[in-house]
């Protein structure tokens, strides 16, 4: 592959490759599954031809499309959240899963499921169908804030502290989740398992309707953060010297991550490693400038998750693997390889 002096592929070629991959993966994801669709079926559904197989039309519009869109959005949000956190903490190992944000969001969602009829009845009455995403958002943002506070006590982000705090936050959230599991009824237990393993299996238009506004809002806010985050790579004091309001930028990034990861967890449960793997791949292609890393992470993250989801549907067909398991299978070894290559944390 052609690389420049810094060993990069460059933004335009990378964008082209990523776009082609996205289109290819989209086609594979929409056509493959328990009921295979031909490209001709898809074309005829979208052009509104009469002779369309009604089952194909139903599968495409009610199952595959919402699943593809939701998968893409969730992947995009998780990847860009990883990129934002890595810039903010100046560390390539920060990830919504590792520092406990996903666990915090998931705990809040599970609390709503299990305690919704008892202690949190007021919350349900107040928020209605938005109860889960809003709770997950609050849980997610609260955890980012907590991790930030713990790691920043001395004024500088202590990365080891951050990752260790992540372990502790994950442990506490895990324990609390376990406790809720203990109290859950059989029915609650079933929907609860969905959160902990991560799945796009139930994705429908209603999930998209609830989750997409939050996730789109998070994605739309990222271009504004790109340049200040580049300054963050030089150190927190430099951000202020360059004329950015350090605190505002930090809070905005935390809000975006909480909003995006909260909504992603609310609709798809716990899916790890996307935020770790994708920005890393993207930086290998175009370098570290967030003006390129953020948009490409959105594209590559969406593509990766949709690809993993397609794979999860075929490997054990007609059943399917939870996407969370699939990503952990891909991401775990990747994370280890990254650790071995990173000399100093």
């Amino acid at each position: 592959m052609i690389r420049d002096a810094a060993g990069r592929i460059g933004y335009s070629p990378s964008l082209l490759v990523a776009l082609s991959a996205a289109v290819l993966v989209a086609l594979v994801s929409i056509t493959s599954g328990a009921y295979p669709l031909a490209l001709a079926d898809i074309l005829s559904v979208f052009t509104g031809q009469e002779a369309t197989d009604p089952v194909a039309s139903m599968v495409l519009l009610e199952v595959r499309m919402p699943r593809f869109l939701l998968g893409f959005l969730v992947g995009a949000v998780l990847a860009v959240s990883g990129a934002l956190l890595q810039g903010l903490f100046r560390n390539p190992l920060a990830d919504p899963g590792l520092i406990g944000v996903s666990a915090g969001a998931s705990l809040a969602a599970i609390a709503v499921i299990v305690l919704g009829n008892t202690w949190l009845g007021g919350w349900l009455a107040m928020t209605g169908e938005w109860a889960l995403p809003i709770a997950a958002f609050l849980g997610g943002s609260g955890t980012v804030l907590l991790a930030w506070r713990i790691a920043n006590r001395s004024g500088q982000t202590a990365v080891a502290t951050l990752l260790l705090a992540g372990i502790a936050i994950n442990a506490v959230a895990g324990a609390a989740t376990g406790l809720l599991t203990f109290y859950a009824t059989d029915e609650e237990l079933r929907s609860l398992t969905f959160w902990t393993m991560g799945s796009l299996g139930h994705a429908g238009w209603d999930d998209l309707l609830v989750g997409a506004p939050f996730m789109l809002l998070a994605l739309l806010a990222t271009p504004w953060l790109a340049r200040p985050l580049d300054a963050f790579l030089l150190g927190e004091s430099v951000v202020g010297h360059l004329g950015y309001r350090t605190d505002t930028i930090k809070k905005a990034a935390i809000l975006v991550v909480g909003l995006g990861v909260g909504a992603a967890v609310a609709v798809s449960g716990l899916i790890g490693f996307v935020g770790l793997v994708v920005p890393h791949l993207v930086r290998q292609m175009v370098g570290a400038s967030h003006r390129m890393v953020l948009p490409l992470s959105i594209l590559v993250g969406g593509t990766l998750l949709v690809a993993a989801d397609s794979l999860a549907r075929v490997v054990v067909a007609p059943a399917e693997l939870p996407i969370g398991l699939m990503m952990a299978l891909i991401g775990g070894p990747f994370f280890l390889a990254l650790l071995l290559r990173t000399k100093v944390i």
């Binding site: 100046r90 560390n91 580049d230 790579l233 030089l234 430099v238 370098g287 570290a288």
Partner: peptide
């Protein structure tokens, strides 16, 4: 000023 990320 320490830069750990691959900026040019």
């Amino acid at each position: 000023v320490e830069v750990n990320f691959p900026l040019t």
